[in-house]
Write a protein that binds this DNA or RNA. Structure first.
Lengths: 212, 212
DNA sequence: CTAATAGTGTCTATCAGACACTATTAG
DNA sequence: CTAATAGTGTCTGATAGACACTATTAG
């Protein structure tokens, strides 16, 4: 059975684009900097966010995981779709649609292959090939939106943690200073106290929390 | 010049999916019902949201406009991307990715070809083929988010309009009753008064406004 | 006049920002 | 003890919900 559309064409009559996934992998470094993983593409040379072409029958999220496992040694991610970049001339290798994704990873889990992959401060990313600067902007906006109302929704902070550690993380994501008391009150409903205290610091010891 | 990826494959080595666009066209009827345009697909039979396959070199938004001009007589839209549906088995005609879109249109501008296109109340849409029920859910959620904070961002209401007319529209989109005085105060910053009054109704005549 | 609808004053509850105070530790 | 940090009480200003009041029209 061959299906035809309203013009009488079958599915095979439609030339098809290549479909790629490109992923902004975001993390926060121990010194509180929001950073993105860049890889050096073989040819043409230049830094870009990791990506790959979709394999036959593959899910987009699986293609993202495959490319990240291969290029940044990262597994177990839950990528989120951001946007389809579809400018016909965006890739000089031909007609390529790119589905941009966001992934987040703990800094400690990153295994970057020095020389082909590096971490770049989000505020220092220059112009990249293709639409990769725009992909990063979409990703940062999405991450900031998620972190605006909930404590560490991406799970970047190992549990348990103090509210100071949580606030440092949120400040890194937001890119701005956050008020101490307001932040605490806003996040408490999404936290559960462990009853344990962090010791060994100056001052009153902070209570340790987990996400609800 | 032939580019190769990290596995040595060229672009031509990758089998490619068909890429479709499917669009939830939303409108509000004169009696205040949020409704979606459904079309009857030729084969296999069944109601669905209008869509088409992407033509070579075509932008996604242009494919949406082409399909809507053809199937619902609608022009001049600004479709918004929602999500890519990528389940490999979602379409029994083969490997088809669908980029879901949202478009809005004034009820008065709809020219539906009776017999192959109809309007369906959003709260009465049953299960549709492919992912089309999910597409409608994405579209309604997006439209509601947009209407939550700004007066008629999609321009569904002909200007000038009274605040009562605006509130009826927002209630149709939100699917719930909205408070009269709070709604007025929330929307006024996004409106400009014309100084003209609506006449011919019972009661105190309402002022007419435009969007800023 | 009455009925109906538009528009507004105002009270209350809630919440963010701001500030200062108390609590508890290290050294 | 002092210095430092955690945690909290509270004041203020802004805002949503709620209610009632005034304003202006049709009939």
């Amino acid at each position: 059975m061959v299906y035809r559309d309203s013009s009488g064409r079958t599915l095979a009559d439609y030339p098809r684009p290549s479909v790629a996934v490109d992923t902004a992998v975001l993390t926060v470094t121990p010194d509180g900097v929001l950073a993105v993983v860049l890889v050096r593409s073989g040819d043409p040379a230049g830094w870009r966010v990791p990506g790959t072409f979709l394999h036959p029958g593959e899910r987009l999220a699986d293609a993202v995981r495959r490319s990240l496992a291969q290029k940044a040694g990262i597994t177990g991610l839950e990528p989120a779709q951001l946007h389809v970049f579809d400018a016909p001339e965006r890739d000089d290798r031909g007609w390529v649609l790119s589905v941009a994704h966001l992934a987040t990873v703990r800094y400690e889990e990153l295994r970057l292959d020095a020389g082909i992959a590096r971490l770049e401060d989000i505020s220092a990313v220059g112009e990249l090939r293709y639409d990769h600067s725009a992909i990063i902007e979409f990703a940062v906006a999405e991450l900031r939106a998620r972190y605006a109302s909930a404590p560490d929704p991406a799970g970047l902070l190992p549990e348990p943690f103090t509210i100071l550690e949580l606030r440092r993380l949120h400040e890194a994501v937001a890119g701005e200073w956050l008020q101490r008391d307001t932040f605490r009150r806003a996040m408490l409903p999404g936290l559960v106290a462990t009853g344990e205290l962090q010791r060994g610091q100056r001052g009153k010891p902070a209570e340790l929390f987990r996400r609800t």
